[in-house]
Structure formats: C-alpha cells, structure tokens
Amino acid sequence: MQIKVTFYGPLKRYAQEDGLAVELPAGVKVSDLLDHFGVEDRIYIVILVNNGRVDEEEALKEGDEVKILSPIGGGGS
C-alpha cells in the first residue's frame, strides 16, 4: 500500500521531500514506517496520521498521510 510521509524541522534529515510516497506492505504500523526511515528518537516526536495525533502502535492504511515532527510551543497564554 502507498502512504505519504512528510518530516518537519530537524527531522527532515530522514526525508527532504514533502508528501513522499512510500510503498509498504498492508497491515503495517507507524513503528514499521519509522523503521523504514531509520528514525532513532522514537519517544520525543509527534506523529500525525491524517492530521490526528497517534502513537507508534497505530495501524496504517492505504492513502494515509503521515506527518512527523518535533514537539514545540510558543507564547504565554
């Protein structure tokens, strides 16, 4: 199945291209996708699938759009 992946900020070192199409076997989880790219820091990252926050155990399906970013914040109130 095909999913699209975008890394942000410093994590772009894993893939520069936005919306990179990746072929993965059916039934894989987010953790398999992270393995595919060799992502090292598995704890302090935010993973969005179709813009919703998920964790590594989330199952992926055909056409999913995955965004991987570092947490950040800003402002005071």
Binding site: Y8, G9, L48
Partner: peptide
C-alpha cells in the same frame, strides 16, 4: 499560533 515550518495541530 506556532507559525511556519511545522503543522500546528489540534483536535
């Protein structure tokens, strides 16, 4: 909001 360069998400 958090500006450019990363998705500023909610739900």
């Amino acid at each position: 909001g958090l500006g450019a360069g990363r998705p500023d998400y909610g739900g």
